[in-house]
Design a protein around this nucleic acid. Structure first.
Length: 423
RNA sequence: AGAGAGAUGGCAGAGCGGUCGAAUGCGUCGGUCUUGAAAACCGAAGACUGUCACAGGUCCGGGGGUUCGAAUCCCUCUCUCUCUGCCA
């Protein structure tokens, strides 16, 4: 959520940012916010005044009671009736204005960082670097959805039987390589100073709101009505929410966490050739990094996270590229996002395997995540990034490393897997 | 699932109609002492809103009510804990 003070004092910057993000009716919405804010402050001032008077009266009555002056007490009591009804009216009005204001504020996305390129959709994203050689495959090379059948390592039909489409069953070496990747990613993060956590994979409504999934992405999460819990779409939600309503002592910053969880996404409205095989699933595994930083350090932290993710891809020997997302393609809550994509040789396309973002104070404002620095209470910056999401990494390994003799496992994973080829 | 207890400041825990934004202890931060530290002693610290700054206002789980006045009384919701049951 954007901070009201900021909008009030930086209307033009706010508008420019919202336009870059292609937020509809920016001008109207911002004017509406400023109008309601003014109304809110006027109402509050008036209410405060009335309350102040009635507090004073109550004090006087207390004193008169003590003095035993019954007649004076009755007179004074009579005088409070008017104040009482007035304060009730004003309190109701204030509540209404605040609710209206809040309802609009939660629909306004974060403002993009100045380095975010203009653009409407994925085609306008800026490729900032490309790394590694795209492999040349042999004649009979196949896409990963054929390979997994050939080697019997993932069974989609079985998943359909048990749960539904998009819930694969990993078998044999398929299951073992999943476990190997998770351990490898966690170990690498630990070496880089991230503290591992195992959070719940369901979250309540407050948590969904805190990181911005609610109300924006309500339809994308599985919901357990009986318990009012959401299955997490990413570990970002439970891990970041560990710090909801927290005032962090300055000496505990920065916070660096890594966590492995399954992730659940309804992916309502997604279908077609591009979602075949492992390209898009309802349940998948991901290792996630979450950081809480002082504002002045957050962009350095973002670069560090980007380099960490890249180091993983390099160790796996996968060709990748890094994109800086344009205003129109960025997430609702993000100020700057880098996407990492690996080359999927048989499909001849790039697959997103990581998204690393700085949310600045946008989530912190919802979370009320603060720290007192030099005597001043301030919102901290939150960041997160996948390191990494498994399915598309696996797709890429299967496709890029296929040979007539089988699929070569990246050397770095061999100690984790216990085998070096899938055949 | 059944029965009971509870929800107060960073934590623990008093208060049960006005003098309470709230005792006390621990923790935190400053100071004295010390070569330094510990101990001891002295002192200072809540959050939000609002103002140029004061003032003012709000907050004792959430919501509602009684009262001139509510942390304290009533209603209601949510959550937590303990015991019993079930179960990895």
């Amino acid at each position: 959520m954007l901070q009201l003070n900021f909008i009030r004092e930086n209307k033009d910057t706010t508008l420019a940012g919202l336009r870059k993000k292609h937020f509809a009716n920016a001008e109207t919405v911002v004017d509406q916010v400023l109008m309601l804010d003014q109304q809110r402050r006027d109402t509050q001032r008036e209410l405060d005044d009335v309350l102040s008077q009635s507090n004073a009266k109550a004090g006087q009555i207390g004193a008169l009671m003590k003095a035993g002056n019954k007649a004076a007490v009755e007179t004074a009591k009579a005088e409070t009736a008017d104040l009482k009804s007035r304060s009730k009216e004003l309190a109701d009005a204030l509540r209404q204005v605040e609710a209206d204001l809040q309802a609009i504020l939660v629909t306004i996305p974060n403002l993009p960082h100045s380095s975010v390129p203009e653009g409407r959709n994925a085609e306008d994203n800026e490729v900032i670097l490309e790394h590694g050689e795209k492999p040349t495959l042999y004649d009979k090379a196949q896409p990963h959805w054929e390979l997994i059948k050939k080697y019997d390592i993932i069974d989609f039909e079985l998943g359909v039987k048990i749960a539904g489409a998009g819930f694969p069953v990993y078998k044999g070496k398929g299951a073992r390589i999943q476990r190997a990747m998770i351990n490898f990613f966690l170990d690498e993060a630990t070496k880089a100073g991230y503290i591992e956590v195992q959070p719940p994979i369901v979250v309540n409504e407050d948590s969904g709101f805190g990181t911005g999934q609610l109300p924006d992405k309500e339809g994308q999460m599985y919901y357990i009505a009986e318990e009012k819990l959401y299955l997490i779409p990413t570990a970002e939600v439970p891990i970041t929410n560990m710090y909801r309503d927290v005032i962090l002592p300055e000496n505990q910053l920065p916070i660096k966490h890594v966590g492995y969880t399954p992730c659940f996404r309804r992916e309502a409205g997604s279908w077609g050739a591009h979602v075949r095989g492992l390209n898009r699933l309802h349940q998948f595994d991901k290792v996630e990094l979450v950081r809480i930083e002082k504002p002045e350090n957050s962009y350095a932290a973002l670069e560090e996270m980007s380099l960490h993710v890249q180091s993983l891809l390099q160790k796996l020997g996968l060709p990748y590229r890094v994109l800086r997302l344009c205003g129109g393609d960025m997430g609702f809550t993000s100020a700057l996002t880098y996407d990492m994509e690996v080359w999927s040789a048989a499909q001849q396309r790039w697959l997103e395997v990581s998204s690393v973002s700085n949310f600045e104070t946008y989530q912190a404002n919802r979370l009320k995540l603060r720290s007192k620095i030099e005597g001043k209470m301030q919102l901290m910056h939150t960041l997160n990034g996948s390191a990494l999401a498994l399915p598309r990494i696996l797709a890429s390994i299967l496709e890029n490393n296929q040979t007539p003799e089988g699929i070569q496992i990246p050397k770095i994973l061999v100690p984790y897997c216990g085998f070096d080829v899938i055949d």
